[in-house]
């Protein structure tokens, strides 16, 4: 599979992973759950995975938990030279 072909499909695993993270932080106290989700993803996901989930959220977003969607603007997508 080429990366372009891969991009054509919804990132099934990333959606599931993001939703799992959101499910955990949804149970945590305080009003900053969306930031906590974004922080976790920023800390542990490779930038290309982050770019992928953000692109998917912008294009479709179906299947993403509302808390993931709320976290998307705080997920950093660095410009990658290579």
């Amino acid at each position: 599979m080429s990366p372009d072909q891969a991009d054509a499909n919804p990132p099934r695993k990333l959606i599931a992973m993001a939703n799992q993270i959101a499910t955990f932080f949804a149970s945590q106290p305080g009003g900053t759950q969306a930031e906590q989700v974004a922080d976790h993803i920023n800390d542990f996901w490779d930038p290309r995975m982050r770019a992928r989930i953000c692109a998917y959220a912008a294009a479709d977003g179906a299947g993403l938990e509302p808390l993931v969607l709320a976290a998307i603007p705080s997920i950093r997508v660095p410009e990658l030279q290579d």
């Binding site: 990366p3 695993k13 995975m49």
Partner: peptide, 15 residues
């Protein structure tokens, strides 16, 4: 951060 083992394998399948 880089890729974890399972992410490496997913990324490999995606090329």
């Amino acid at each position: 951060p880089g890729l974890r083992i399972n992410n490496m394998l997913d990324a490999a399948v995606e090329g």
